[in-house]
Design a protein around this nucleic acid. Structure first.
Length: 1103
RNA sequence: GCGGGCGUGGCGUAAUUGGUAGCCGCACCAGACUUAGGAUCUGGCGCUGAGAGGCAUGGGGGUUCGAGUCCCUUCGCCCGCACCA
């Protein structure tokens, strides 16, 4: 029997599964190595041969590293939230979870067949509640953090609140969008609403009115990178700009670090450059223009601009504001009002797409207002124009027509002056943006070069107090909400319009069921359809029923899990709430009623030996007075408390159950009969036993109250109805794999400390400014919180190239049912039509097959050339609609997984894009057959000899080990496949069947062709998987040569060769070559002018 | 416009520090074996030329004893960003 890959591959895949061969454990003395593939979105189309390219490469590398003694983490999972499953749900009503599950199963089946060594026990799915619980948790940390520019890291929002309480917000160097300043007194006087609103301007996750890419076709907003040429990347629907309240993540806080840290990671220059470009750092100055002279006057308005060319200020002849600029309305004069309104309206109604396609179209309007150029005190007009973007810088520019092409175009169009500011610069046909010229007409800057003038100008700007040097970034904060169903719900609810986090113990906030996956009639996201989907804060919720206790929401109906940590997380949540509640209690103290004040005075005057506290926080409640030692609560109620009655009763009940006694008095009782009230209190104090110790101060010491409650509509709050974008889950999944089944944390500290970061990350370059930027952002954030040890996710990144498809076309003669062969098509007017590539071989169409393929071809006429129908062909993206998809399943069925693996590697360099061509695969198939034969007799019996190998055989083996090792280390997988082929050819030539050669050979090849090597390994008598073997070391001794056939070149052209000993010195080689017979022919009796000897390489003779 | 990458036989590619251009494979050609096969084995295969030789790494120029590799210039293709002040 020849090698039967069907049985062998199935057998070993089963073995690996049964023995959990590739399961990774963390506690290991071996050095760690983390190899990660970008996880796929499980689409309905399944895998085509392009998808596994990266997986195969990373698998080879993982297997190689294991053989080299590393503890390798090589996991896989699914980026399972996403639009296609949801679009399918909209069309069919099928829950996206079902679609997703089916697709995942199909993916898994296909992946398994390739023989990839993933540790599936660590699989993650971003759509799984046990996973997105932690995505929500990280969001909560973002919400609870601000960015301190002083320490250059994210810090807890509590620290900021403390600063506000002490000093207000001036002097705090935070990344924020808070405009107004306030002092400590003002802060402490703000009500909660005001405080929370301000805090939102500092939080790293915040809610803001944002200009977004609204896609009506998809009913959602899209990120910039999800929009291509004015239409949505998915689905190709038009996209428009719209102002909407959205969750945003303050990624701009990290702009500088995201930029600088690129230098320390081994990623391709193109990705790093794409990120640098996206972050878009530019150095310049921020300065103000106002209608009056600056020296000491108070202006009515100021226009702030950002410029990278402060040196050109003397050339400023007008200002341009974006049409959306907030000052437009204010500064517009009555004469110009109409023109401005019309223009603003015009600009608003132009879609993104129009703006893109009309890049060079110049438009704008004059506001009627003038500002003063602070450097030369000239009066300059203020215009608006949509070439100025509202989102960048300040949304206003100082226009220097001589130095900036856009300003030049605008000036030319509206006939504004274009004064020269650089000596000898020709600005008649366009601006001169270089900085090398000498400044003229520029006051104190005259005579300087642009470079020098920039520094001088900034100095002057700062001296005048009208601005300062500034670094600006193009990067914008990331919009983090999507009006979609199939994504992570936010752990957020709204109370009086303000967002609050749910308690940590209530995570995950599960995705509710909805009747339809469409927006509601009034344009609310699909989650608004969910019935009774509201948040009831813990204090009003019944405690967990015993049956539910300890059952993870994702495991309902499954096996209950013991959770001791429950209490700990409760306390964390309470501490956070306590801060807020405490703030409230302070407020309440200030607005105390007369009766409360009276009672407070009396309680103090009574000199009771027991301490009372006023407006004190107990868990989430604020009680009027409390004696903690006796656990006695005193409430003073107003006359009208009907609305509050139920709540108060409920509260009393909970407090009672937790050991507090609650006594109530009305305001009237206190005011009219204070003695009676005090008496009642004293009696109560005497009858109650003291606690053994008084809680020293804070209510954290009070254990969380046990709850019961009534629930009810009045005390529940609406959840956030948006969901998170697709990149939320993928921004931290690499961490989850480190400890994928942990339900107490996103990953344990031990796990993150052991695995640290990704050593090798493989994936497509299309994620350059999306996923790869966000994952760096979240990594840095979690690092700031001290939760992980590294501030970059991946040390090394490789982008595998795309495998394109080769589409085949037939040519229909227009208006007929005739199809003409490719080389005859110029004789006809015809239309190319895609045909399924499986019906085409070497461009020849299988006519019988196409007649069966579709009815319209059944009795079509095919116009042949030389008896054949030749198809046209073109390289295109592999896609179902182009009928050019090649499935790995088909290849594996025909040639086996090992063959597919090696062939995909053999196609060319990993990073290069290339078209798939099944034709070449027979070379690799032959290779595997030849390999098998080395270990077998002609009669197909397994046989290896225990004889000692010859030096020639050892040389073949060791040069192969050396070359393969070098190749794998530099990710040159295509060349190592060639090396294996050479090795097998050479061993076949010498009919080598020595165990001493074939055994190590199986090991090094096993990374590439694991199935056949496992089989050979077991035939060689080994009981354990070959993946547990040790990569052989190559030995220089077997490789050294004692002589070398020198190529002898004359004037750089090789003319003949000489076999010479490698022990000869340079001089000896030169002498031998000079004397060589062949030399006469080239010398014509002369002596060579020069002889260059490169030992072991070449000899060059100059004549 | 800016940034990144690429250009080598009929095709996919190789040449790791400047040192024999075309390894390995596909396709093709010739042959062997043979109950003819999409099997296996042997040989050939950059272009040109009968041959010696000449010409060849998109084009042109340069550095060097020697350039696919380094420098300048130019053309073509692919990818990313793009009115970013």
């Amino acid at each position: 029997m020849e090698y039967d890959f069907h049985d062998v591959e199935a057998k070993w895949q089963q073995y690996w599964r049964n023995h959990q061969t590739y399961k990774t454990t963390g506690d290991n003395n071996r050095p760690k190595y983390y190899v990660l593939d970008m996880f796929p979105y499980p689409s309905g189309a399944g895998l085509h041969v392009g998808h596994p390219l990266g997986y195969i490469a990373s698998d080879i590398y993982s297997r190689y590293k294991r053989l080299k003694g590393f503890n390798v983490l090589h996991p896989m999972g699914y980026d399972a939230f996403g639009l296609p499953a949801e679009q399918y749900a909209i069309q069919t009503g099928q829950h996206p979870a079902i679609t997703t599950e089916q697709n995942i199963n199909r993916y898994r089946e296909q992946l398994d067949k390739i023989g990839l060594s993933f540790d599936w026990s660590r699989e993650v799915r971003t759509s799984d509640p046990s996973y997105y619980k932690w995505t929500q948790w990280i969001f909560m940390q973002l919400f609870n953090s601000w960015y301190n520019n002083g320490t250059k890291k994210a810090e807890n929002i509590q620290a900021l609140i403390t600063l506000f309480q002490r000093n207000g917000n001036s002097g705090i160097d935070a990344v924020n969008n808070q405009e107004k300043e306030f002092d400590a007194v003002a802060w402490n006087n703000f009500n909660e609403r005001e405080q929370q609103t301000i805090l939102l301007n500092y939080r790293l996750a915040y809610l803001a009115d944002t200009m977004v890419n609204w896609c009506p076709g998809l009913g959602t907003v899209l990120a910039n990178e999800e929009v291509k040429d004015g239409v949505s990347e998915r689905g190709g629907f038009p996209v428009e700009r719209k102002l909407m309240k959205q969750w945003c993540l303050r990624i701009t806080a990290y702009a500088e670090r995201l930029l600088n840290d690129l230098d320390g990671i081994d990623w391709t220059e193109s990705i790093k450059d794409a990120q640098r470009n996206w972050i878009g750092r530019s150095e310049g100055a921020m300065l103000e223009f106002s209608p009056d002279s600056y020296r000491g006057q108070k202006e009515d308005w100021r226009i702030e601009v950002f410029t990278t060319r402060p040196d050109t200020i003397f050339g400023v002849t007008f200002l341009t504001l974006a049409p959306e600029h907030e000052l437009v309305d204010k500064i517009t004069t009555n004469d110009q009002r109409k023109a401005i309104d019309e223009y603003v309206n015009y600009a608003k109604n132009r879609s993104e797409r129009e703006r893109m396609s009309e890049v060079k179209k110049i438009s704008g309007a004059f506001t009627g207002a003038y500002a003063i150029n602070p450097f030369n005190n000239e009066k300059i007009p203020v215009w608006i124009g949509d070439y100025v973007l509202s989102g960048y810088g300040t949304g206003a520019v100082m226009a220097v027509p001589a130095g900036d092409q856009r300003d030049w175009d605008f000036a030319k169009y509206f006939k504004l002056p274009i004064p020269a500011i650089v000596k000898d610069a020709d600005i008649s046909e366009g601006a001169d943006a270089t900085k090398d010229g000498i400044m003229i007409n520029s006051g104190f800057l005259n005579g300087l070069t642009g470079h020098q003038a920039i520094k001088a100008a900034i100095k002057e700007i700062e001296k005048l107090g009208i601005g300062k040097g500034k670094i600006n970034y193009r990067l914008r904060d990331a919009i983090f909400s999507r009006q979609r169903y199939w994504g992570e719900p936010f752990p957020v609810y709204y109370k009086e319009g303000l967002p609050y986090l749910v308690e940590e113990s209530e995570l995950p906030v599960l995705l509710p069921d909805v009747d339809k996956y469409l927006p509601t009639e009034d344009g609310e996201p699909p989650l608004a359809r969910a019935k009774d989907w509201r948040y009831s804060p813990k204090s009003l919720n019944p405690g967990p029923s015993p049956s539910e206790k300890g059952v993870h929401p994702s495991e309902k109906g499954g096996v209950p899990v013991e959770k001791e940590e429950k209490k700990a997380s409760w306390q964390t949540a309470n501490v956070k709430n306590w801060e807020i509640t405490k703030a409230n209690s302070r407020e309440l103290r200030k607005i105390a009623t007369e009766a409360e004040d009276l009672l407070w005075q009396e309680l103090r005057n009574q000199k009771l030996e027991i301490k009372f506290r006023r407006q004190h926080v107990i868990d989430e409640f604020i009680v009027d007075f409390v004696c903690l030692e006796k656990m006695l609560v005193i409430e003073v109620d107003g006359e009208i408390h009907n609305e509050q009655k139920e709540y108060d009763e409920q509260r009393t009940l909970i407090l009672n159950e937790n050991g507090f006694n609650v006594i109530r008095f009305t305001n009237k009782e206190v005011k009219e009969n204070i003695q009676q009230v005090l008496h009642t209190i004293k009696v109560e104090l005497q009858t109650r036993q003291s606690l053994t110790k008084e809680p020293s101060d804070l209510s954290e010491e009070i254990p969380p109250l046990r709850r019961r409650g009534v629930g009810g509509e009045a005390e529940s709050y609406p959840y956030e109805h948006s969901t998170m974008p697709g990149w939320a889950g993928s921004s931290w999944y690499f961490l989850r794999y480190m400890d994928a089944n942990n339900d107490q944390a996103f990953a344990s500290k031990e796990a993150v400390d052991y695995w640290q970061d990704i050593d090798l990350y493989l994936g497509g370059a299309e994620h350059a400014t999306g996923h790869l930027l966000y994952v760096r952002f979240w990594t840095k954030f979690l690092f700031d919180l001290g939760l992980i040890p590294k501030n970059e996710p991946a040390k090394k990144l490789i982008n595998q190239g795309m495998i394109q498809g080769v589409s085949s076309f037939i040519f229909r003669v227009n208006g007929t049912n005739k199809y003409v062969s490719a080389n005859l098509k110029s004789n006809y007017e015809c239309t190319p039509l895609h045909v399924d590539v499986s019906m085409v071989k070497n461009n020849e169409l299988n006519i019988a097959a196409i007649r069966k393929w579709r009815p319209e071809y059944a009795d079509a006429e095919f116009i042949l050339e030389d008896g054949k129908y030749i198809c046209g062909s073109e390289v295109e993206k592999m896609s179902k609609s182009k009928w050019n998809v090649v499935s790995p399943d088909d290849i594996i069925n025909a040639y086996g997984a090992d063959c597919l693996r090696m062939y995909e590697m053999f196609l060319g360099p990993l990073e290069q894009s290339k078209p798939w061509n099944t034709n070449g695969i027979s070379g690799v198939a032959n290779f595997i057959r030849k390999l098998w034969r080395l270990y077998h007799t002609k009669e197909h019996q397994f046989f290896v000899s225990d004889e000692a190998p010859t030096p020639a055989e050892l040389k073949v083996l060791h040069k192969t080990i050396k070359k393969v090792e070098e190749d794998v280390e530099r990710f040159s997988f295509n060349t190592s496949v060639s090396t294996f082929m050479i090795c097998i050819n050479e061993l076949t030539d010498v009919k080598c069947n020595k165990r001493a050669i074939l055994e190590p050979l199986a090991i090094i090849l096993s990374a590439y062709a694991p199935h056949v090597c496992e089989e050979l390994w077991s035939l060689l008598g080994h009981k354990e998987s070959i993946s547990k073997a040790v990569f052989p070391k190559w030995n220089e001794a077997y490789l050294t040569e004692d002589s070398f056939e020198y190529p002898i070149s004359i004037n750089g052209k090789v003319r003949f060769k000489l076999q010479l000993s490698l022990n000869l010195t340079k001089e000896e080689v030169e002498q031998t070559v000079r004397k060589a017979e062949e030399m006469h022919k080239y010398l014509n009796g002369d002596q060579p002018k020069k002889v260059i000897v490169v030992p072991g390489r070449i000899v060059n003779i100059v004549v």
